[in-house]
Write a protein that binds this DNA or RNA. Sequence first.
DNA 1: GCCGTTTTCGGCCCGACTGTTTTCAGTCG
Length: 581
Amino acid sequence: MTNAEIAAVLEQVADLLEFKDENPFRVRAYRNAARAIRDLTESVAAIAADDGERLLAIDGIGKAVAEKVATLARTGHLPQLTELLAEIPESVLAIMRIPGIGPKKAAALYHQLGVKTLDELKQACEAGRVRELKGFAAKTERTILDGMTLAASAGQRLYWAEADQIAQELRGHLQGCAALEQLELAGSYRRGRDTVGDLDLLAVAGEAAEVMDRFAGFPGVASVLGRGDTKMSVRLSSGLQIDLRIVPRESFGAALQYFTGSKAHNVFLRGLAKQRGLKINEYGVFRVDGDRETYVAGATEEEVYGALDLPCFPPELREARREFEWAQAGELPELVCREDLRGDLHTHTLETDGRDTIEEMAEAARRRGLKYLAITDHSQRVTMAHGLDPQRLLAQWEQIDRLNEQLGRGFTLLKGIECDILEKGGLDLPDDVLAQADWAVASIHYGQRQPRDQITKRIVDALANPHVCCIAHPTGRLLNKREAYEVDMDAVFAAAARHGKMLELNSNPMRLDLDDVACAAAKSYGIPIVIATDAHQTESLDDLRYGVLQARRGGLTKADVANALSWPQLKKRLGIGSEKK
DNA sequence: GCCGTTTTCGGCCCGACTGTTTTCAGTCG
């Protein structure tokens, strides 16, 4: 079983225990364990099979969960889950996902009305039976019915890039309000997660009501979900929820820290504060002395973390993974930034499925401050994209040679190729052609649903080819659309490390592949990461920023990123440690 | 169920808002 699958089982156990009104800390323990496993770079099943004791070393996994993970890894099933499901139908969990319905209300519906499914719930609401229950009334029925249509129509997370666009529009809209003094976006958007579920806005305002009125007037607002003195929530017609909090100036940093999260990061931070006789909430850091609380800090995030002798963590690292450990050791990485990148190593042109010419791509890259650009059109197997056979490829490379002469110093076009890894294994172009490339990436477009061993072998074999520099979009995932291939990433990392090869972090906002966790794993193997756009048109060269965000989330520094090197340096590096001399 | 510079028991982050209540439970983030 994969880490994601094991984590999903533990999450389901947590959901069911919550429904049963079990000890909330026990529920949290299962959720923490699930998160720890999801964040793990090694296969937890492999660890369990290899040495059960090592499971206990993972933060958040104790004796009980370790045994359950071992059982899952061995048999693929968890008796505890089977027993819970015999008691509670799985379909009630869907009811808990309706906004406003939590475990208590779902349990009341199930036990008192026998409601097991969303359909039954809808009927019960329409028949007016729900309002008869204690704690429910007509308004709750309405909320449930609204929530159900919403759950059916929306619920999908936005790509970070989409969220960013709305965020910028919101910022522009609110800045037209005279009462606004300070504004920042927080939440998973600020942490740079690959997808964003909702937006969190934070403001300091002379007059909160004025900012809230302005907020309600944001184009696309379909309904106001709630509005108090300091907090307001709206839903856009697209289904996206946006929360606005108005805080006092002296609390802005504390609120920003608080609402940036992650939740796990905050829980850990608050625990640290408590040990020191401090309390942190969204209003600040307070010294607790009996019943008296004295404000210590809160205007800026630096102050808040500083009160605990901690560095102001970059938001991308705030996931309760390694950041506190790094801070304690004084080893917080200095994360890579967009300005560190000197070239783009995965782009397409009109010659295959791109939209612009080589010259246009080169000019756009130069305008963006890049010093080199690899043209990596598709190889012949990708017929839909009119992929290049050896003859057309060699002709393109001749053209690149000529263009380089015209471009002169200061910018270099690289003769590249995105060579397909064929379904039956092996590469789509002969070695003598690949040998003439400056830069060859290999990738899978066909046979994505092959079994684990087969697809892993294809990638591992491609890494062994002396002319291949890098594997592009190594897992093939498409956010919200397609899961990663069944690929043994540990085997891929080991092979890349063995052959001195690189792995791509594809910056397309719908891919972001490798993801943050895989980037961290690759780093632990010493594998250089290539942050590349896979641009099919000039504007997409801007996508590097999305890749950079993921790289930062993976804890990568400039030194971990191959295209932070100049082309001569990179070229030298390609010769070292690989069979390509 | 996890964890340990309050260490094998007894804690476990904290507050806003809503709806349903007449003082608070439930939900959410």
